[in-house]
Amino acid sequence: MDQTMLVRETIVDQLTQMIGQDILTGKYPSGSNLPPERILASSYGVTRTSLKHSLVRLEEAGLIETKHGVGSTVTDFLATGGASLLPLLMRFGGFELIDSVLEARALLGSVIVERAATLATEAEKSELRTLLARLGEAKSSKEAQLIEAECHKVIARASKNAVFILLVNTLLNAYLPIGDLLLGPFKDPKSLAGDLRGMIEAICGNNAELSKLMALKYFETTGKFMKGDKKWEE
């Protein structure tokens, strides 16, 4: 990799992403050892101190295992990694990983929506209706995408389950950084708002069974557009 001058405030973040990308794209395959720290630091144009901090993060994420006297070994991230890897995997893990994230989005999302339908407060219902109206009036696909993400955050909050909230945040943090590649369902905000309306109305009506069915339909439809299986009509 070419040496790159990195901003001091974010050098460890950027370095972690760079090494992580090289691991996920096969430069350092599972089971192999990373080069010695002196060589590795030089190849990325950073100090060994910055490299050490980055290696700690990569180990915490489950991408490497570091042992004194042995060095850093690339692990099988599917066996050792956690949800914190999702943002990195979405960027560099390929579209097969995106399929997995979208599948998890549908299965997990429908359960969260079902729970929200029984626990949402009037304030949360009002917030969802406001977001739905804003979505229909969005001026761009990117604006629509961000508003839709806010809807999911409110629904997760309405579930009153901290783990669901954190998982939704993790999934959104994974796909929003590459959101420009997944704008299919957001090109027609009015149509998207129409698709989302059934799910939100079911939540606001405290209809758990219907809300889950509407959620599965919504996530399946938008997921297909995100993957490019269909094209929006002009």
Score class of each variant (00 low, 15 high):
M1H: 12
D2A: 06
Q3F: 08
T4K: 12
T4Q: 12
V12K: 01
V12Y: 02
D13N: 14
D13R: 10
Q14P: 05
T16W: 02
T25C: 07
P29D: 10
S32G: 10
E37V: 12
E37C: 07
R48L: 10
S50M: 09
L51P: 01
R57V: 13
E60Q: 13
A61M: 15
G62R: 02
K67S: 15
G69C: 08
V74H: 03
V74R: 04
F77K: 03
L85A: 05
L88K: 02
R91T: 00
R91Q: 00
F95D: 14
I98C: 06
I98Y: 00
A104F: 09
I112A: 01
V113Q: 00
T118R: 10
L119G: 01
L119P: 02
T121F: 06
T121K: 04
E122T: 08
E124F: 08
A133S: 11
R134M: 07
S140V: 12
E143L: 10
Q145P: 03
I147K: 04
C151G: 09
H152I: 05
R157M: 11
N161T: 08
V163M: 10
V163G: 03
L166P: 04
T170Y: 01
T170A: 13
Y175K: 01
G179C: 06
G184M: 09
P185R: 01
K187S: 14
P189A: 08
S191P: 03
E201W: 06
E201D: 15
G205N: 14
G205P: 15
L210E: 11
S211M: 05
L216S: 04
K217G: 15
E220A: 12
T222L: 14
K224C: 11
M226I: 06
K227N: 13
G228M: 08
G228Q: 13
E234K: 11
